[in-house]
Design a protein around this nucleic acid. Structure first.
Length: 430
RNA sequence: GGAGAGGUGGCCGAGUGGUUGAAGGCGCAGCACUGGAAAUGCUGUUUAGGGGCAACUCUAACGAGGGUUCGAAUCCCUCCCUCUCCGCCA
């Protein structure tokens, strides 16, 4: 499983080092390169031994066929030489394997390289705002604005208290129209993305270790996912995981590309290390619903596909008249698997700020290498890795919170956006 | 959960120790034939890594990992997965 391109690492070490430095953090490339060169030396030795051993293996039946006595000295000499080679090989083999394992472990820890276009920066404070949309839809009565959890609890559609009893904190029950609104949002988003050309999938949300490694959640971020240890299965943190891995270990035909999928799934995150943050409301739950978009594309088109995906995400917010802005993540804030990423942030009036509601990433060939997803162009030799992209279209719970807050009325009611009304039996108000 | 069967190339499918990376078929590509096509015939058709400007060459891979052997797709062990029947179940 080649992860970050080992050949590139070998041949353009300084470039890789420079790119990784833009992310911040410490990456010991020299150790990997040293392992690599040791490994290559040993493999060369092993190959020679193996070649000799193969020769002997072929020579013995030939000699016998040519009349040599199977029990005679000639055959015995060959056998003992073969045996000798075998002994040397069994000495070499574990060394090679140990080096390869060590190198593989280290390579799996390396994040993707930021793209040329990605702005350099240390952390989220250096992300770059690209544009804003819908200022005119922001509520104009800030003093009367209440947070969505108050609105939801008052309407009897959000229940956090009993969710604690049933599960834990950071879970919610959606009751009555709350559940209906969630379903309406899911259906609306799916219908929009299907109309935009994405083929819907309902994937497993319990996935294997290999699947989670393919998209980059493992091995580094095990503490972020819920695991069913008995079965070696994990709850998916996002549908990006099963959708991208749909094609793991496959060689696609160039004419199959691009592949566009969307999916509604629940998502599960342990949110380790975020104890104090967003403790109220729908913003940060262990389980939430999301409509996800995933693309597998030809490398030449991935930049355009990325822009198009971003537009597919923002189209949902525009249809709902929800104010948002788009930011481009700087190198220091980029996710592990991404080489370039836009976050879409929706206006949350109670917090007087924008909150992430979608993240659209281009992973280049990073995930394709891990998951071994290739394509073949007829008439061309060999295979190429596809590029993978993923984006939320959108996070449903966060959309609901934005909707409750932006559409709240002074009398405590909440208007239902026009485009959602058909999904709620024509209802106009919550 | 109990009993049984099986995992081979893009697909089907042969192959139980010795030039088998793997017969045969299908598919696909090229060429021939044709006015064009079908049919037919011939040729070719895996991937990854190393070496060479290249022709080419070496190594690995028959679910995964170990073992036996000079030599394993073929024998032995462990694990994984799939299928069938029974039980259970939304």
């Amino acid at each position: 499983m080649p992860v970050l391109d080992l050949k590139q690492l070998r041949e353009q070490t300084d470039f890789v080092r420079d790119r990784l430095a833009r992310r911040g953090g410490d990456y010991d490339l020299d150790a990997i390169l040293q392992l690599d060169s040791q490994q290559r030396d040993l493999v060369a030795q092993r190959n020679q031994l193996q070649a000799r051993s193969n020769e002997i293996g072929k020579a013995i039946p030939q000699k016998i066929k040519a009349g040599s006595d199977p029990k005679g000295p000639e055959i015995a000499a060959l056998k003992s030489e073969g045996s000798e080679a075998k002994t040397q090989l069994s000495d070499l083999e574990p060394q090679v394997k140990a080096l390869q394992d060590e190198m593989g472990d280290r390579l799996l820890q390396l994040p993707n390289l930021p793209s040329d276009e990605t702005p350099s920066g240390k952390n989220e404070t250096e992300n770059v705002e690209i544009f804003r949309w819908g200022d005119e839809y922001k509520p104009t009565n800030p003093e009367e604005i209440r947070p969505h959890w108050e609105i939801g609890e008052q309407l009897g559609i959000l229940d956090f208290k009993r969710a604690v009893k049933v599960a834990q904190s950071r879970f919610v029950n959606l009751i009555g129209l709350g559940a209906a609104l969630e379903r309406a949002l899911i259906s609306f988003m799916l219908d929009q993305q299907i109309a935009a050309g994405y083929v819907e999938v309902m994937p497993p949300v319990l996935v294997s270790t290999a699947t989670l490694t393919g998209t980059g959640q493992l091995p580094k971020f095990a503490e972020e996912s819920f695991k069913c240890a008995e079965d070696d299965l994990w709850l998916t943190p996002t549908a990006e995981v099963p959708l991208t891995n749909l094609y793991r270990d496959e060689v696609l035909d160039a004419s199959d590309l691009p592949i566009h999928h969307c999916a509604y799934t629940p998502c599960f995150r342990r949110e380790a290390g975020s104890y104090g943050k967003d403790t109220r409301g729908l913003i940060r739950l262990h389980q939430f619903n999301k409509v996800e978009m995933v693309k597998l594309v030809h490398p030449d088109t991935s930049a355009d596909e990325h822009q198009a995906m971003l537009a597919n995400a923002t189209a949902i917010l525009e249809a709902l008249d929800l104010p948002y802005r788009v930011i481009e993540l700087c190198s220091g804030d980029l996710g592990f698997s991404a080489n370039r990423c836009y976050d879409v942030e929706v206006w949350l009036p109670s917090a007087n700020t924008y909150r992430e509601i979608s993240s659209c990433s281009n992973c280049g060939d990073f995930q394709a290498r891990r998951a071994n997803i290739r394509f073949k162009t007829p008439g061309q030799k060999g295979t190429q890795f596809v590029h993978t992209l993923n984006g939320s279209g959108l996070a449903v719970g966060r959309t609901m919170s934005a909707l409750l807050e932006n559409y709240q009325q002074p009398n405590g009611a909440v208007q239902i956006p026009t485009v959602l009304q058909p999904y709620l039996g024509g209802r106009t108000v919550l």
